[in-house]
Computed example of a mutant assay.
Amino acid sequence: MLIKLLKHEINATRRIFLPLYGALLILTIFTKLVLSLGAPDFFSDNIATPTAIEIILSICFMLYLIAITALSIITLVMIIQRFYKNLFTDEGYLMFSLPVKTWELVLSKLLVGLMWTFVCSVIIFITFFIFSLGTFSMMELTQTIQTAYTDFYATFGSSLNLLIFELILSLIVGVIASILMIYVSIAIGQLFSQHRIVASFGAYIGITIALQIIVSIIMAIFMMLNINMVINQNQEVMQFFHWFLNATTLFNVILSIGFYFTTQYIMKNHLNLE
């Protein structure tokens, strides 16, 4: 049944996201074509009347920045809206009448939200890549990457692949924890009979403040225990950075588990639909 929930959620959201992705890619390609006609010097000290290309490029870049910002905001809004509207409003009567388990409802929303967050990031990266076309060759890119790997190992005595893996893993777990934090805040907010949105927002702020206090205490304790630690050498700095990344990932894993089961518990035992 989880597969059916995922298909339904994807079909309900792709009609919004796919046109936005297409519009952003078209705008990027058009901007790149205009840019290829002649890149103007926007930072020149010479004040002159802007040409038609400069005006068009200025408009295109402004629209590009607006589109990226809007796409990021819409992704976040859709994650919130789909979870709240489908599960805690009148639509919730239909969703909870289906022969599915509570954990499947939560997991389906989480996976689709994570998927669109990932796709949004990839699309933005593709637009950056399109803008960079023509500025370097693939051979130059390959040589630069090889040099970066060699220099990184020579400087820090550690593999760059390991660092990249840890960064990606930490980022993914962090996004999951962020989404589940939104879900648990909404679940806590629906426990109130009135002003549920305000209560959810208040729960989110309360959790954020509590987490900041906990993280500050943990960091203070760590610094006290390691106050004499010398990290002047590059390898010691990298070891500390690896530890920090792994500790952050573990902390977010614990948060994700706590948020997930708390959300599931509230939905299963204290559901209060509008």
Score class of each variant (00 low, 15 high):
Ile68Phe: 04
Ile68Thr: 04
Ile68Asp: 01
Thr69Lys: 02
Thr69Arg: 02
Leu71Phe: 00
Leu71Arg: 01
Leu71Gly: 00
Leu71Thr: 01
Leu71Cys: 01
Ser72Ile: 07
Ser72Gln: 09
Ile74Glu: 00
Thr75Trp: 03
Thr75Asp: 01
Leu76Asp: 05
Leu76His: 05
Leu76Val: 12
Val77His: 03
Met78Lys: 14
Met78Phe: 04
Met78Gly: 01
Ile79Phe: 00
Ile79Ala: 04
Ile80Phe: 15
Gln81Leu: 11
Gln81Lys: 10
Gln81Thr: 09
Arg82Leu: 03
Arg82Thr: 13
Phe83Gly: 07
Phe83Pro: 08
Lys85Thr: 12
Lys85His: 09
Asn86Phe: 11
Asn86Glu: 15
Phe88Arg: 06
Thr89His: 07
Asp90Lys: 14
Asp90Pro: 08
Glu91Gln: 13
Glu91His: 14
Glu91Arg: 11
Glu91Gly: 10
Gly92Ser: 10
Tyr93Met: 11
Tyr93Leu: 15
Tyr93Val: 13
Tyr93Gly: 09
Leu94Cys: 05
Leu94Thr: 05
Met95Leu: 08
Met95Thr: 05
Ser97His: 07
Ser97Thr: 15
Leu98Ile: 06
Leu98Ser: 10
Pro99His: 08
Pro99Ile: 02
Val100Asn: 15
Val100Gln: 12
Lys101Cys: 07
Lys101Asp: 08
Thr102Glu: 07
Trp103Asp: 12
Trp103Gln: 07
Glu104Thr: 06
Glu104Lys: 09
Ser108Asn: 05
Ser108Cys: 06
Ser108Phe: 07
Ser108Ile: 07
Lys109Ile: 03
Val112Ile: 13
Gly113Ala: 02
Gly113Asn: 03
Leu114Gly: 10
Leu114Asn: 06
Met115His: 03
Met115Ile: 10
Met115Tyr: 11
Thr117Asp: 09
Thr117Tyr: 11
Phe118Ile: 15
Val119Asp: 02
